Simulated assay, not measured.
Amino acid sequence: MNVFASLVERLADLLQPLFATTATAAAIVLFTMLVRLAIHPLSRASARGQKARTRIAPELAALRKKHAKNPERLKKAVLELHAREKVSPFAGILPSLLQAPAFLLMYHLFSGDRMAGHTLFAAPLGDHWADALSHGGVLGPAGRVYLVLFALVAAVATFTYRRTKAQLAAQPLDLGQPTPGAGAIAKVMPLLSFATLISVAVVPLAAALYIVTSTAWTAAERAFLFRDQQGPEEAAAPVATRA
């Protein structure tokens, strides 16, 4: 942990001539981007797994229909399909799980007392939104910093919500057999993107900067990795309207 804290401090020193008193905040943003860049290969692996599941989804649906009354035969046929196509039924999940330790490390790093004394404009990096509200209110100097962060998070969450909803419509949750509660999960999952607003409101500002940066990176990264996939609305649009 101290190694990463030292790296952030060195980045802040390098950025001092450009960002002055906000150098530490800029260093947090830059460091978060560097970490996300380092684990980008895991994201690419996850995307490949999800695309593989999308590719074989029609065949899975056909197998379910063909062997609807024979669960054992269906299970065997699905396993054979996965083996033939070299696709794991959980393709894409493991790489995502491997990213969790890096995210937790970053969160704890930017939630510590070492952020005390550093600011993002008028907002101390060690304070919370509640502190900003108690010192000037929503439109106070620190409150306005949070308003900008909330606006950024809301924009990214809306983008992610629409994209996730379109992807779930194109490929329902499916692991090769009917998934209990899949309909309810599909309705709730896109809304989880807005949970970031709550996180930004309750964590220290330094951690909030990490969350905002990481969330924006994720949205841009997924848009890039899945750029070859169209949502149902776009696929159904006339060719002339897409030109």
Results as ranks from 00 to 15, higher is better:
Val145Ser: 05
Phe150Gly: 11
Ser134Glu: 14
Asp131Arg: 08
Ala123Pro: 13
Ala116Phe: 12
His108Lys: 12
Leu139Trp: 14
Ala116Lys: 15
Thr119Tyr: 14
Val145Trp: 03
Thr119Ile: 03
His108Ala: 06
Met115Gln: 10
Gly143His: 03
Pro141Ser: 01
Thr164Trp: 00
Ala166His: 00
Gly126Ser: 15
Thr158Gly: 05
Leu109Asp: 02
Phe110Glu: 07
Trp129Pro: 06
Leu109Thr: 04
Leu125His: 10
Phe121Gly: 14
Leu109Arg: 03
Leu147Trp: 03
Asp127Glu: 10
Ser111Trp: 01
Gly136Arg: 09
Met115Cys: 07
Leu139Glu: 04
Ala130Ser: 15
Ala142Met: 11
Ala116Arg: 15
Arg144His: 04
Ala132Gln: 08
Asp113Gly: 12
Arg114Asp: 15
Val156Lys: 03
Gly112His: 09
Val148Ser: 08
Asp131Met: 11
His108Asn: 06
Ala130Glu: 13
Ala155Gln: 01
Lys165Gln: 05
Leu109Glu: 04
Gly143Ser: 11
Leu152Met: 11
Leu147Gly: 14
Pro141His: 01
Gly126Cys: 12
Thr164Glu: 07
Tyr107Pro: 04
His108Cys: 00
Ser111Arg: 01
Phe121Tyr: 07
Gly137Trp: 14
Val153Thr: 05
Leu109Ala: 01
Val138Lys: 13
Ala123Tyr: 02
Tyr161Val: 06
Leu149Phe: 02
Gly137Arg: 07
His128Lys: 13
Val153Lys: 00
Gly136Ser: 06
Phe121His: 08
Ala142Asp: 04
Ala123Phe: 02
Trp129Gln: 05
Ala123Glu: 12
Val153Gly: 12
Ala142Leu: 04
Gly117Lys: 08
Ala151Ser: 13
Val138Cys: 11
Lys165Phe: 09
Tyr107Ser: 12
Asp127Gln: 07
Gly112Arg: 07
Ser134Gly: 15
Thr119Glu: 07
Val156Arg: 09
Trp129Gly: 02
Arg144Asn: 06
His128Ile: 05
Ala123Arg: 01
His118Lys: 05
Asp113Gln: 13
Pro124Ile: 10
Lys165Thr: 09
Leu120Lys: 02
Leu120Glu: 01
Arg114Cys: 06
Ala132Phe: 13
Arg163Leu: 01
Leu147Ile: 11
Phe159Thr: 08
Arg163Lys: 00
Ala166Met: 02
Val148Trp: 03
Ser111Thr: 14
Gly117Arg: 12
Ser111Lys: 00
Ala142Ser: 14
Ala116Glu: 11
Ala130Phe: 14
Phe159Gly: 00
Val153Asn: 07
Thr158His: 04
Leu120Gly: 06
Gly140Tyr: 09
Thr164Met: 04
Arg144Ala: 13
Gly136Pro: 05
Gly143Tyr: 03
Ala155Lys: 00
Leu147Met: 09
Ala151Gly: 12
Thr164Val: 08
Leu133Pro: 05
Ala123Val: 06
Ala166Leu: 00
Val138Tyr: 07
Thr160Gln: 01
Thr160Val: 07
Arg114His: 12
Asp113Pro: 10
Phe159Lys: 01
Val153Met: 05
Leu125Ala: 14
Phe159Trp: 02
Arg163Gly: 00
Thr119Val: 14
Ala123Cys: 08
Gly137Val: 13
Thr119Gln: 14
Gly126Glu: 09
Ala142Gly: 08
Met115Lys: 10
Ala132Val: 13
Phe110Tyr: 06
His135Asp: 15
Phe150Lys: 00
His135Arg: 10
